[in-house]
Every structure is written in C-alpha cells, then in structure tokens.
C-alpha cells in the first residue's frame, strides 16, 4: 500500500449495544490489509476504549481513521461535557461513571490509561461544555 486510506464513522450514544462497531470495522479492515497482528490489537483496543468513552461520557461524535504505510492515526471527536481535569482522568482507577455504566462492565477508570499504554502517541484536547477530541497514533 502506498497511499493513505481515510475512514470516517459516526458514533451514536443512543444505543450502547452498538458501541464498538466502528472499532470492529477498522479491525477487520486492517486485517484485510495485512497489517501486523500486534499493531492491529493496539489500534483495536485503544479505539474501542475511546469509542466506549464517547458513548458513556459524551453524546457520541465522530471518528476519523487515517491509515498510511507508516502509521495509523485515530481522531475521536465528541460533543460531550469535556474533561475537567485531564491529569486526574488519566490516572488508573479514576472514573466518574455512574452505577448503571458499571453494571454494563465499564467504569473501572482504566480506559484512558489503556489508550495511552497501547498507542505510540496520544493527545487530548477538551473544552468544557463543548467536547473532547482524542488523537492517537500507532506506528506500523
């Protein structure tokens, strides 16, 4: 592959059962393209955590994925409440998820630390009351 591929997904917050469909689709695409299993797993896990966050903490949004021969860049932009304290949110175990989210198997406060761990670069831009954009990069 010589040119880069651009994928876009709308993430709806209305239906929790569908959360993760974008990540699943990207994972299948990378597999078809013959990307290494390690890189695929890193992208899949990081994007899935980010996608879930967009659904449970924000009101959905959109995801852009750019796949070039050297790297995969994921941009997750939501229209949520924003993150008050990024440093605190990045700490393992910190979560503001309510009990109903916990009952669904999320809200351990591990998502953002996992995203950082599995990616080669991660940046969070957030504006209170407007939304959050998380950009992650994985080298392939």
């Amino acid at each position: 592959m010589s040119e880069s591929i651009h994928l876009t997904y709308e993430v709806s917050a209305d239906d929790f059962t569908r959360a993760g469909e974008a990540s699943s689709s990207v994972k299948r695409m990378l597999k078809q393209m013959g990307v290494s299993p390690e890189a695929i797993r890193k992208v899949a896990i990081a994007m899935y955590e980010g996608e879930i966050n967009m659904v449970i903490h924000a009101q959905g949004g959109h995801i852009d994925v750019e796949i070039s021969p050297e790297e995969i860049i994921m941009t997750l932009a939501d229209r949520g409440p924003g993150i008050k304290n990024i440093e605190q949110a990045m700490q393992a175990g910190f979560s503001t998820a309510p009990d109903n989210v916990r009952a669904l198997g999320f809200g351990a406060g591990m998502g953002l630390p996992n995203m950082k761990k599995y990616t080669d670069d991660m940046k969070i831009e957030t504006v209170i009351g407007v939304g959050t954009t998380v950009t992650m990069k994985v080298y392939i």
Partner: peptide, 17 residues
C-alpha cells in the same frame, strides 16, 4: 470468564483476540 451478559463482552473478546 465473566458474569456479564451484554454485547460488549463479545466486542471486548473480539478486540483482544
């Protein structure tokens, strides 16, 4: 092994191979 029964269990399994 899990006691949780929702579609995200299957998705998580998918992401983790």
């Amino acid at each position: 092994l899990t006691g949780l029964c929702n579609p995200q269990v299957v998705r998580t399994a998918e992401m983790m191979d």
